[in-house]
Design a protein around this nucleic acid. Structure first.
Length: 364
DNA sequence: TACCCGTGGAG
DNA sequence: TCTCCAAGGGT
């Protein structure tokens, strides 16, 4: 059905020399990163989860704080989930944090705190997919397992002239086969990290620095003058726009109304200010909606401003309104009143940290 | 398979 | 301002 692996490797491709050139360059040029100070599998694991779809510069401070707070699998396993989410606040893709803690708990319970060093057990842990499994096995345990991420697909697509669409999920399997063929068995850690480091520093998506490339002589795309056209990557679809009213409701004690988001889905388990879908909803309907949802009567509404927040797959257009409530004790539902100090302890998504600014500026 | 799931930086 | 993204995984 599909071609044999060897058909994808050019006849004249010198695997040994390629490995040597790549790893020699990596040893000389590798960045001094916090998770490269030792080979603690736990730290490698945490770093790999944080680095998923996230830039190195963004991760560094989060990694340092996280490891300082949870230095061992036992420390993370014993922490409150809310505390873990607070450490993850602002990093995005929050299910990573939940899955990481869940998997670490399993490691502590089933493996006495020792991270598994085999593909089967490691790959069964929550949040560890094919890439992360290979990264941990190669970097922490020096096993010759492929770790194919976006960097590796881009680099190998150019080196070996692969024209398959790297945006398709099925294409990753092809690159895993190719990586398995060219990986160094002497130093799988340096080889895999070298491939990724090359993708991050030299073989970049736009304007690759071929003149500085340590494996230029091995690169099919460069020889063809087509390094700019590879890899082939189809475009994603546009984000859907969602309009909302975000309500800042303050009581007589200068407490503000907040709620926890559902345990599943977008921003799961994080806190937020009440949000009303604004689709075809006027002020009267908004007051009615608020009464139904929270059991509180709005007296007057004041528009404080507008914020746009862009997610990977959707956009929130938020009108921020301050609600003055009718006096007296009413039957509060669903949400709760929070003091200023609680807002600092609970995890909020960045979109609602923006709202928090409005609250703090409106109440001296 | 296609879609869901965040954020901030670069050009 | 707009587009593309950055060391993916879950469902």
């Amino acid at each position: 059905m599909n071609h044999l692996n060897s058909e994808r490797i050019p006849e004249q491709f010198n695997i040994q020399k390629f490995q040597l050139d790549l790893m020699t360059w990596f040893q000389r040029e590798k960045r001094d990163l916090p998770w490269r100070k030792d080979r603690d599998p736990y730290k490698i694991w945490v770093s790999e989860i944080m680095l998923q779809q996230t830039r190195v510069d963004t991760v560094i401070p989060y990694f340092n704080r996280f490891i300082s707070r949870f230095p061992t699998p036992e420390a993370l396993a014993g922490a409150d989930e809310q505390e873990v989410l607070k450490e993850w606040e602002g990093l995005g893709y929050y299910s990573r944090a939940r899955n990481l803690q869940s998997a670490v708990k399993e490691v502590v319970e089933k493996y006495d705190g020792n991270i598994p060093d085999n593909p089967a057990e490691l790959g069964r842990l929550k949040g560890i997919g094919p890439y992360t499994k290979g990264a941990i096995l190669s970097i922490a345990f020096n096993q010759p397992e492929p770790a194919v991420d976006g960097n590796v697909m881009r680099v190998l697509s150019r080196i070996l002239y692969v024209e398959e669409d790297i945006a398709k999920a099925s294409t990753k399997k092809l690159f895993e086969k190719l990586a398995r063929e060219v990986i160094s068995h002497d130093d799988p850690s340096s080889f895999n990290q070298g491939l990724m480091e090359l993708g991050a520093l030299i073989c970049t998506p736009k304007n690759p620095q071929c003149m500085l490339c340590p494996v230029q002589e091995h690169c099919e795309a460069f020889h063809a003058g087509l390094e700019q056209t590879l890899p082939v990557k189809s475009k994603g679809k546009k984000q859907k726009i969602q309009p909302y009213y975000v309500i800042i409701a303050v009581n007589d004690h200068q407490e503000v109304l907040i709620e926890q988001r559902p345990k599943r889905g977008l921003l799961a388990g994080l806190y937020q200010f009440p949000m009303a879908p604004a689709e075809k909803r006027d002020i009267a309907q908004l007051k009615n909606w608020f009464l139904n949802e929270y059991g509180l009567r709005i007296n007057h509404l004041e528009l404080l401003g507008h914020e746009k927040h862009v997610f990977s797959h959707l956009v929130w257009e938020m009108d921020i309104v301050k609600a003055s409530l009718e006096g007296g004790t009413l039957s509060l539902k669903r949400a709760s009143w929070a003091k200023e100090e609680e807002l600092q302890i609970l995890p909020f998504p960045v979109s609602h940290q923006k709202i928090m600014q409005y609250f703090q500026e409106s109440t001296p």
